[in-house]
Nucleic acid binder design. Structure first.
Length: 215
DNA sequence: TACCAGGAGAAAA
DNA sequence: TTTTCTCATGGT
């Protein structure tokens, strides 16, 4: 598995070049985006972020000062807007109550993860996206794209629990968060680019590695 | 028109 | 414990 994962990484990196995620202008914007992108296309998240940015500074304090109703209206383009307004407020409250970046940066990764998962509306994927991209810690974001890709490469069955998939990948990567960052970003790029529109992956940069591909 | 998108949590089985 | 349902806009 390790060799295959590393080969896939190298191949995608060669094909697409460095992705340099997360696509955000400020650190807290990563956190907001991680919540808003839950089961939503990034294009729609960008609309909501633009609406939000036009009204208030993208900080936990400013978001908590807005009324829940107004916040929900700004988030409307990203879908599930009432739900996401609640979740975003919960995350902002978590940040403020724990001393913001300064306070949270002092926690070890496992502690940070455990506490993030206690926030209502933050599941494993959202927590790991925040930990990897906003806190720059080496954790793998085992999202739908990676599950789809690894399943296609026959590295996993496909229905493993989130934690199992995450642990499997983390065993094969080192401890440099930049690798986790690039790898996950490349997987998403590849997934958007090819795998969704061409389900059998017969014509992508990973073709040679795909057991289902002919020839 | 139907389906999907960088999920999570509650309810039902 | 596992499966199903709900939340919702916007693109293809």
């Amino acid at each position: 598995m390790m060799a295959t994962l590393q080969r896939a990484y190298r191949t995608m990196h060669r094909h697409y070049g460095p992705q340099r995620w997360w696509p955000a202008q400020a650190r807290f914007e990563i956190v907001i985006g991680a919540v808003l992108t839950q089961s939503t296309a990034w294009r729609n998240v960008e609309r909501a972020l633009a609406a939000l940015r036009a009204e208030i500074p993208l900080t936990a304090e400013a978001i908590l000062e807005a009324t829940p109703h107004r916040l929900a209206e700004w988030l409307r383009p990203s879908g599930y807007y009432n739900l996401k307004a609640q979740r975003l407020r919960a995350v902002c409250t978590f940040f403020v109550r724990n001393g913001g970046w300064h306070g949270l940066d002092r926690w070890q990764t496992e502690e940070l993860r455990r506490r993030l998962l206690e926030v209502r509306g933050v599941g494993p994927e959202t927590a790991d996206a925040i930990i990897l991209y906003a806190f720059e810690r080496p954790v793998f974001v085992a999202d739908a794209y990676s599950r789809r890709l690894f399943s296609r490469l026959r590295l996993i069955e496909g229905d493993e629990p989130y934690e199992q998939l995450r642990a499997q990948v983390e065993e094969t990567l080192g401890d440099d968060h930049r690798d986790y960052n690039e790898y996950h970003a490349l997987i998403v790029r590849h997934g958007k680019d090819v795998c969704r529109s061409r389900p059998r992956c017969f014509d992508c940069c990973l073709r040679d590695m795909c057991p289902a591909a002919p020839g």
